[in-house]
Amino acid sequence: MTEPIRVHRPEDVSAHPLDPDISVIVPITERPEDLVELYHEYSEPLAESGRSFEFVFVAEPWGRKLTEPLLDIASQGQPIRVFQVGQTMGEAALLRLAAAHCHAPVVVTLPAYRRVQASALEDLIQGLQDGADVVTARRWPRHDAWFNRLQGWVFHGLLGSFTRPRLRDVACGVRAIRRDVLMQLPLYGDFFRFLPLLAAREGYVVSELAVPQHERDTSTRLYGPGVYLRRIIDLLGLFFLLRFTEKPLRFFGLLGSLLATVGGGVLAVLLYQRLNGQGIADRPLLLLGVLLLVLGIQAVALGLVGEIIVHLHASGRRSYRLAHQPSSPGSESETALPPQRGP
């Protein structure tokens, strides 16, 4: 963690449980609402359940105004911690930061705006106690604009075509995760959205739970074209990362040989025609054939370099995770295993 952090801590620390059962992480990124109201709404059912909890808010510089009222109620003894980063870092960095600074064994991530009913948090935490490592909320039944549902349906249809478990509300962002699991997962760039899928890739138990949608979560969301483009690129990146991180040449090799075969076919046809006396110097098809062949070779060469990089890194890395430590722990000291890292 190298992000510049300034921590605003209330002076009266004694009011906070030092090791709460639940840490609720709220990264403040878009569409922020009144955070004090949000805190009261979501913390009430948690308090009723008798669990000890803390709320960890992380804000970028522009969120300063929003978090000030939180510090006021924190000084009155509410279990709230507020972190302020010095620059705009993006949501993944905020989540990573908050995860590193909270201590509860169970972490709940919550957007800074209302998406699900407050009662949902309790259900998600219950799901963890039933044996899951990650429980992600699905807003269901939906009662927001049809356009939201349509774009969600298309996106999750694409996503579900190549990922398991099939998730139907990745965008929701309300999740309960065991903290040790969260710390094992790579939270970078735009892939934090797919956190449950990254967890499933590491062999953790992931489940999706239908929870009631918040009545305020109804506005029609039409984004700029750049956002849609980014989501599609995310899907492409995810597809590659989930399937081919250990075997890049399978991806690039397949792509490259397809291109090269088509290109070679075109050139073969042209060669045949040339031998039969037909001129080819003025045929743009020749350009197409050469272009496809060249592209194909480039793709294979790139896959080869990827394969070299994987090969070089493989010796220092274990790409698997054990379900639990082996039964005879005493023996482990004899086999010097390199530290387990995610692929």
Partner: peptide, 18 residues
């Protein structure tokens, strides 16, 4: 006999490496 249990199905190569 010792049992090493992988967290998910990784395939035969990874199981052997484990």
């Amino acid at each position: 006999v010792r049992l090493i249990q992988l967290a998910r199905n990784y395939g035969q190569t990874t199981a052997m490496q484990a």
